[in-house]
Computed example of a mutant assay.
Amino acid sequence: MATIPPPGSALGRLMATLPRAGRVEWIGLRPKRDVAMRAAESVEAKTGAGLVGDRYAGGSGKRGVTLIQAEHLPAIAALAGHDAVAPALLRRNVVVSGIPLLALKGRRFRIGDVVLEGTDTCDPCSRMEEALGPGGFNAMRGMGGLCARIVEGGAFRVGDPVSALELTEDIITDDIRDDD
């Protein structure tokens, strides 16, 4: 993991500057293992846990929500040899457009009433071979999205903005501050 520079440094200022807010395009929940994800228009997020109705809702907080970049879906589809890829196939909870998700790693951001903190990249798993066909795992590498923990619970819905919160030294997590 790369070290996050101090917020006041030149690199820190560059990393903190995002062109605009993003937008929630899709929300998906999987109530139990080995069932298809179901789309939702809105969802309740529980602090330190996960999304109500998702099988990971009671688990550890570092992966309470998984997000993927909408702009990556056509690239994943092309690399996997498909015309398009439905978000539910990729097993992420939230599809976001307009904001670079990896820029949110190690920082806090808001979606609706919810404050999240990007904890790590959300790398693909072996199930992508089944979902996308041979090479599906590699088609997703580098575009698997972001895992986040829920810092402040609440609700969010499709269409809500995704906005980075001000990057300050006191909210950079120890996991992110240290080397990968």
Rank of each mutant, 00 (worst) to 15 (best):
R141N: 11
R127C: 03
L11M: 14
C147L: 12
D123M: 14
M140T: 05
A148I: 02
G142A: 06
P134R: 15
A2R: 15
N138Y: 15
S42W: 11
D180L: 11
I150P: 02
V114E: 05
R177M: 06
P5D: 11
A86W: 06
T3V: 14
A45E: 01
P19M: 13
R91F: 07
P87M: 12
L67F: 01
V158P: 00
A45D: 00
P7S: 03
A164P: 09
D160I: 08
R23T: 12
V43H: 01
G81I: 11
V24S: 07
P124W: 12
A70W: 01
P19C: 05
R38G: 12
P6W: 02
G28L: 04
N138V: 10
E169S: 02
R23S: 12
S60T: 09
P134W: 15
G118Q: 01
S163Q: 12
R23H: 08
F137I: 13
L165V: 04
E44F: 05
P87V: 08
A86G: 07
T121Y: 10
P87T: 06
R20S: 09
G106C: 12
K105P: 04
R13T: 05
A155K: 14
E166V: 02
I68V: 08
M140F: 06
G48H: 09
D174H: 05
R127D: 08
L14G: 06
A80C: 04
G48P: 01
T66W: 00
G144R: 06
V35C: 10
L132A: 11
D179R: 11
R91A: 08
V96P: 01
E130I: 15
A78Y: 08
I171E: 10
